[in-house]
Design a protein around this nucleic acid. Structure first.
Length: 294
DNA sequence: CGGCAGGCGGTTA
DNA sequence: TAACCGCCTGCC
């Protein structure tokens, strides 16, 4: 039985299942804004009511959180989809309160970062989607990354469904991309990344998905930073600490580390944050991004 | 116009 | 292995 029942308007003929909103109760330490805008994903869009609509894992949802009532509202196909897709994707099962306590107890810098972005959850994303997304993200701006990903999905991805007046497409599978040419990708405006994407898609189509850092970095266009993001967001490797310009900047300003020495920063993180490095990275990144003058 | 952005690959020493 | 440089593109 649904806790909340809000059938979408325009219920069609009834041959297809509609979208309903489902309540997930007793949720704390979560904020969709923090989670969807901390830089880990590119396909979620803020609505006027503060909810987020987006797609992942071949599904579509609208997600809203009522902090006063501690209720998470997920609009999607079914209650089963909430349980099997969205709760795992949103990492609902993890005790973020305990994790934040551990990170902040003896670290005033983390205290400030967590006070700012304490509603971040690290999404359990699809491995191939994270590879494509972060390969495209290199040396690029967020709005353009989002545009490239949407265009790529729209042109070569499978139509998932129509939801709230919009057609949503999945990112193309490796074997689909592997058959394309740079010319095919020209409308996506990937620039020099198109070559990287095609080469990596071919490699994955032939050899299967990478399973560790070495295999990741053997793909064309994937170096230490992108591999770190893929391990963290797509492989559940929470000890990863990808160092980009923002993280390097904040680690310099707040921990006094040498900004140019990215491997040194990563090493410090491993010693300082240990198995929680990935969570620390997200709190710090979001804090740095949203407070440019930290 | 040059500078630059959520890096990487390739070339040098 | 560290230091450079060029790179598509779009925005400032």
């Amino acid at each position: 039985m649904k806790d909340i029942d809000m059938p979408e308007s325009g219920g069609e003929s009834g041959e297809k299942m509609g979208y309903d909103c489902f309540a997930v109760k007793q949720i704390t330490d979560f904020d969709p804004r923090h989670t969807f805008e901390c830089g880990q994903c590119f396909r979620w869009y803020r609505e006027e009511d503060g909810s987020y609509t987006g797609t992942a894992l071949g599904k579509i949802a609208n997600i809203r959180y009522d902090g006063r009532e501690k209720i998470l509202f997920i609009c999607c196909r079914s209650r089963e989809e909430v349980d099997t897709v969205w709760k795992p994707y949103l990492d609902i099962g993890r005790d973020y309160g305990a994790l934040k306590k551990q990170l902040t107890e003896t670290d005033p810098v983390m205290r400030k970062a967590v006070d700012f972005g304490g509603g971040i959850h690290i999404l359990k994303q699809d491995l191939w989607e994270t590879i494509v997304s972060f390969l495209i993200s290199q040396n690029n701006h967020i709005p353009r990354i989002r545009g490239c990903i949407e265009k790529l999905a729209e042109l070569y991805g499978r139509l998932i469904d129509e939801y709230r007046g919009r057609q949503w497409y999945a990112l193309p599978e490796p074997h689909v991309l592997a058959q394309l040419t740079e010319e095919d990708l020209a409308p996506v405006r990937l620039g020099y990344r198109a070559k990287y994407l095609l080469a990596s898609a071919k490699m994955v189509a032939e050899q299967g998905l990478p399973e560790n850092d070495e295999q990741l970095q053997s793909l064309c266009g994937i170096g230490p930073k992108v591999a770190g993001c893929v391990r963290l967001f797509g492989m559940g490797r929470y000890d990863a600490f990808p160092v980009d310009v923002w993280v390097a900047r904040v680690m310099h300003r707040l921990y006094g580390l040498e900004e140019k020495d990215r491997s040194g920063i990563a090493r410090f993180a491993g010693e300082h944050f240990g198995e929680l490095s990935g969570f620390a990275q997200q709190y710090l990144f979001y804090y740095a991004r949203e407070n440019v003058k930290v």
